[in-house]
Amino acid sequence: MNIPQLQEILRRFGAGECTPAEQELVDKWYSELVNTGEVPWNVEQKNRLQATFENRLLQSITNEPQAAPSTGRVRFIQRKMWWAAAAIFVLLAGGAYFFLNKPKKEIEVVKTTTKPQNDVAPGGNKAVLTLANGTTINLDDASNGMIAQQGNAKVVKLDDGQLVYDAKALTIDHSPLTYNTLATPKGGQYQLVLPDGSKVWLNAASSITYPTAFTGNQRKVQITGEAYFEVVHNSKMPFVVEKGSMAVEVLGTHFNINAYDDEAEMKTTLLEGKVKVSTAVGNGSAILKPGEQVSLSHSSHLSQPIPVQTEEVMAWKNGQFHFEHADLKTVMRQLARWYDVDIVYKNPTQKNDPLFIDMSRNANLSDVLKALEVSGSARFSIEGKKIIVL
């Protein structure tokens, strides 16, 4: 959302023409200003306050901005772009100005409980386990406790959205390798503890295929979608993750792989330790250090490692949406997976402002879309299981 759009919202607010969503937004900003003491109740200080806001706005355009205050569950990320900082200060200044020009009895912030007619709840712990014999178990419906026996392995579902294999039983299993697959639907996520004790977090619309016992000189798994790994170190049995033509050999512990088919590239990001990324067609390899990311295109072109902000990469695993300077379609793909909705663009070729947002993935879809409308130039509506991008 650009500055003229913000100013238009504030003009409508002052004239009493705001929509309920816009009214709630301005109420939240003003409430935060009052709570932090930036907006005094003394109306005699109004003129000085307005001048102060004006100076702060001009200063924000030429200097490094400060982080914006919290707005309930939505926290805008500190921006280095001056226009984003200017937009925040315009909203803060405008909100204070219009509220202070209202009669005092109207200044109280009213919390609304009105819900949109159309809304979508967030995803949750949902997955299907496919056993070696092809039997499927819907983990949403399965009771907690032991749910299957695979060779000498006990498969246990815990009450916190976690599937665990009995590693002690597997250490003496010398039978031929059998494989299980854990898959999450759109709107689902799940955590898995592999037979060696390594931990895996699956994002929505993802899967991992793995042996029910690790034997030989290598631990190998295959994934689709996105997964985060915390691997138990074993120098005699390296851990390898495969996806199509990409192989990630784990020389350390904590890393994330984003390998959705509808993304332009497969991305591997290292948080701790060391990993080696290579291609099956022999187009080279790369070794990552913590805080670095490498990309593999669908044409098997492997990029050089680059430093990245791991907070944004790992937001999904930490229960957050975190976008910094993100393009609209990248954000919409994530929302489509997590809320199990389809995206319809009224104007697919339209350019939109970069999006900035940091909020919980436990929020309803309407709350996320409200925040995105404030942080960018797009507007949205929900029609059943569709997000209409206006």
Rank of each mutant, 00 (worst) to 15 (best):
T19H: 01
S206C: 02
T269I: 03
I343D: 11
K385T: 13
V109C: 00
V240I: 15
A96W: 07
M266W: 04
Y179W: 15
M332H: 09
A148W: 06
K370P: 02
K105E: 13
A169P: 00
S70V: 13
M266F: 09
N364R: 14
T36W: 11
F321L: 15
P65N: 13
Q189E: 15
A204N: 02
S375I: 00
G188H: 03
N203R: 02
A121M: 09
D358N: 15
P69K: 08
A371D: 08
A280G: 14
Q149G: 03
K329V: 09
I387N: 00
P307C: 05
Q218I: 03
L58N: 11
H301A: 09
E38I: 11
N217G: 10
A167H: 08
K154M: 08
G134R: 10
T171G: 03
T135G: 10
V128E: 07
K104Y: 13
I147N: 01
V232E: 15
V43E: 13
Q350T: 07
Q150G: 07
V248Q: 03
F76M: 08
D342P: 01
A121E: 09
K199W: 12
K351N: 13
D140H: 03
G225S: 08
I343K: 12
S303W: 01
I77A: 06
A15G: 00
A169D: 04
T209G: 02
T113S: 15
G14S: 11
T349R: 15
I172H: 11
P20I: 07
N258V: 08
S303D: 05
Q334V: 02
N152P: 06
A183R: 04
L25H: 05
Q5E: 15
S206M: 03
L296N: 03
G95N: 05
F255T: 01
Q149C: 01
T178C: 06
Q59N: 08
M266H: 09
V200Y: 00
D261N: 05
P211R: 01
